[in-house]
Amino acid sequence: MLRLPKFRYLQPDSIGAAIRMMADNGPDAMFVAGGTDLYPNMKRRQQTPKVVIGLAQINDLRTTKGQLKDGVVLGANLTLSEVTDDSRIRHAYPAVARAAELISTPLLRNMGSIGGNLLLDTRCNYYDQNYEWRKAIHFCMKKDGDICWVAPSSPRCWAVQSSDCAPVMVAIGAKVKLVSSSGERMIPAAELYNDDGIRHLNKRPDELLTEIHLPAVNGWRATYWKLRRRGSFDFPVLGVAVSLKLSKDKTVEDSKIILGGVGSYPIEAATAEKIIAGKKLTEEIIREAAQAAYQPAKPLDNTDFAMTWRKEMARYYVAGTLRELAKL
């Protein structure tokens, strides 16, 4: 049986207590919500906190607040099932509900949290392996080693941003609230992520993610398409989140096209956004945008599927999402 290493487990019952415990324990401590990312990583000895601070008992992290007209605030520790089952979310933020619903399995969604999902460790199949396996390849720079096996000449880690909700949150312009003993800050989801497989979050380890602010819908429509091998279990090897604001005559007023799973952060397809700006989404424009959108996708050979095929699929998926939204 693959087991957890030893650690001290703390269960604060308020945000304040959680922050205090974190401050007291310093860099050896980590928060855990559903544990569906952290515990497998700990069992494989990829992450080895000495102290784990469980968030399950903090009720403030499990509420949904706000009016649809001003936007909705999701507590970071709502489970993915709670998010998808919430009829208001399904109705007003179908892309969020969809992304959450496409994560792994029903069993896992009953445990994993929306906050934990946004903070999910980047993934790479040279890294998501047991200690002994990694030892056999002499480790890699993300943990215990000093080289990147995916791109050995590269000075950086290319582990993949693999959260399904992250690209959606970026596309719809959600904000996240981070709280620590030195205060709190609210940043756009887009700013939460870095183009680096190791330092992939612009978040200090002691910061607690408390809330996710979904902006008022205000005429925007969004969708999310996920590519993976099987209809469940599997992480995205490509996720396309698109959010659009169309004028009355259906021209694109504004848009966000975000690609997940093909780089270390949710990648914005800015050229494609420019192509559709001020235009009606005809089949021709969609094709042109899709062609442009697939350029920034940088899949490498560290996930499931052949990387060239994954890159190509970006085109197909972007076209698909745009078509879906254009039909509305």
Binding site: Y9, Q11, G34, G35, T36, Y39, P40, G54, A56, S81, P106, L107, L108, N110, M111
Partner: peptide
């Protein structure tokens, strides 16, 4: 009443 994965839940929780 909800199905979850016992391999990823802590006993103490």
């Amino acid at each position: 009443g909800r199905p979850v994965l016992s391999c990823l839940a802590l006993g103490v929780a």
